[in-house]
């Protein structure tokens, strides 16, 4: 349990490190993933082609139209790749207190999960966790960074979640 989870987090961190500050189109031309082509049934495809995250307004957990379209794509991919399960991480920006942000992140992760379930993904394949404000991906203290930290990230892995 602990080992497997650590592996998920590390791969997540690598992906995030590769993404930091660079649009996906640019990133595909650099680094080890320079082919720009991913196996359709790979977590990398899910991250870069499907889109692994949705964003939220300040202190909100309602899904925007853009978020719903990303989750539609996630649901379709999960439908085609039944051997994958997912851990949905809810996050908040730094502009809140610690406990409240944990609860808010839980709400955001649940909003994404509920939407995926409504699109036919079996609830048993989806787990949620909240990191509150503990794991920002952007570190500046402006709305530009905060808006990217208010997120629910779907981390897929082969096997049961």
């Amino acid at each position: 349990m602990t080992l497997r989870l650590a592996a998920i987090l590390i791969s997540g961190a690598l992906v995030l490190a590769g993404c930091a500050g660079a649009p996906n189109d640019n990133m595909r031309n650099t680094g080890s993933d320079n082919t720009g082509v991913y196996q359709q049934d790979s977590p990398e495809f899910f991250v870069h082609q499907v889109g692994d995250r949705v964003h939220f307004a300040v202190d909100q957990s309602t899904l925007s139209a853009e978020a719903m379209s990303i989750l539609d794509a996630q649901a379709a991919w999960l439908g085609q790749n039944g051997e994958f399960s997912a851990l949905i991480e809810g996050h908040a920006d730094e502009q809140g207190t610690r406990e409240y942000n944990l609860a808010l992140g839980a709400r955001r992760a649940a909003a994404a999960k509920d939407y995926l379930v409504s699109k036919g993904v079996a609830g048993g394949r989806l787990r949620t966790i909240s990191y509150g404000k503990e794991r920002p991906i952007e570190i500046c203290s402006t709305e530009d960074c905060w808006s990217r930290n208010r997120r629910a990230v779907t981390v897929v892995s082969a096997g049961s979640s």
């Binding site: 406990e99 944990l102 609860a103 839980a106 709400r107 955001r108 992760a109 649940a110 509920d114 949620t128």
Partner: peptide
């Protein structure tokens, strides 16, 4: 589920905490 925000009672016998399940805390 997630448990967090613990706090002891003044007599030390009881613990308060938050539990998040299905997004509700």
């Amino acid at each position: 589920g997630m448990t967090f925000a613990p706090r002891y009672s003044p007599d030390g016998r009881t613990v308060l905490m938050s539990l998040s399940e299905d997004g509700n805390t």
